[in-house]
Nucleic acid binder design. Sequence first.
DNA 1: AGCGGTGGAGAACGAGCGTTCTCCGGGCCG
DNA 2: CGGCCCGGAGAACGCTCGTTCTCCACCGCT
Lengths: 189, 189
Amino acid sequence: MPRMAVMDSAVAREQALDAAEELFYGRGVQAVGMDDVRGASGVSLKRLYQLFPAKEQLVEAYLERRDVRWRDRLAGFVARREDPRERILAVFDWLEEWFGEDGFRGCAWINSYGELGATSSRVAAQVRAHKQAFRGYLAGLVADAGLPGTLAGQLFLLAEGAMVTAGITGQTEPAREAREAARLLVRAG
Amino acid sequence: MPRMAVMDSAVAREQALDAAEELFYGRGVQAVGMDDVRGASGVSLKRLYQLFPAKEQLVEAYLERRDVRWRDRLAGFVARREDPRERILAVFDWLEEWFGEDGFRGCAWINSYGELGATSSRVAAQVRAHKQAFRGYLAGLVADAGLPGTLAGQLFLLAEGAMVTAGITGQTEPAREAREAARLLVRAG
DNA sequence: AGCGGTGGAGAACGAGCGTTCTCCGGGCCG
DNA sequence: CGGCCCGGAGAACGCTCGTTCTCCACCGCT
């Protein structure tokens, strides 16, 4: 009955990714060994290498899954607001919530880019794709609000600056500063 | 005559730092070995370890020297403008110049923070100090223009967002987008 | 009960690299 | 000219870590 083995593989994969995400995000990719992932996940090394033939693939899977979840969480939060302009500002409210979470250590993609961007072209491409998706999402919000397209890039830069600054300082305040700037830019637009 | 030896040490130190800066910035700190620094600088390993007892100290010296130079270059560019509001916008003009330079790979401190922030508290502190100095510089420009203090944080976030985005995409455009947003915020202030 | 195969624990291997050591040549002093 | 010290080249050492291998316990089947 291979059904069971398949299920176990799926479970092991999730456990491995859960552990990898916490460790990679919290300490940096290079500071975490495959053995650390094994220890934290309970998935044996043999199985880990069956699921992810090399560490780089585990890293890619980690960024990929986090990308989907991150954008879903943001979109879910924003969708609760009705007014199109409020939705734009809600992005920054969500950032503030995120920055305040336990274990927040900045943007996983910006951090990974600093760590691996010069070495791994695949990671670099994933980071670019993630940022482009976020920017595209903002562009959609701006268009829905009937505001000029140039605003999207400006909001994007504010959000990126807030993420990087919150990551470095450990404070949530950058989200409020960015929100206030966004409010002024929306009003001016 | 120890005079000569002292001079040579100073020269060797500069050569080592020149090579370290190019390599660390271009490829990331962890991807560069001490032997690479030796090869690129012509300074022998023995001498390298006399000047910098461990790699971490070389990294610190690299960030320290680059910090001074970076802020001097920015301040020098901005000081050429007379009008206080123009000086604020000149910051973003300088960013555009910087982004367009050969070998530009984003902000050295943001990248280093992503790579080492979770591991080395000394590097993390240096990054925070650099960013705080930059923010303080912007606050001075804002005060000189008689604009409200809250503007400084907003301009800072725009600049950080532009640096991180230019680093990831390799384009200079974020500087112009940030400049336009800054112009609107200055006008609104 | 015997047995084949699956999977886990952890040793083993090999590469990379930070750091130190050894050896040697070349200039300076008596 | 002979001994001495400074510094360079690069081998060596020890550790980490990605990846693979070995061995063994367990589980289902006949």
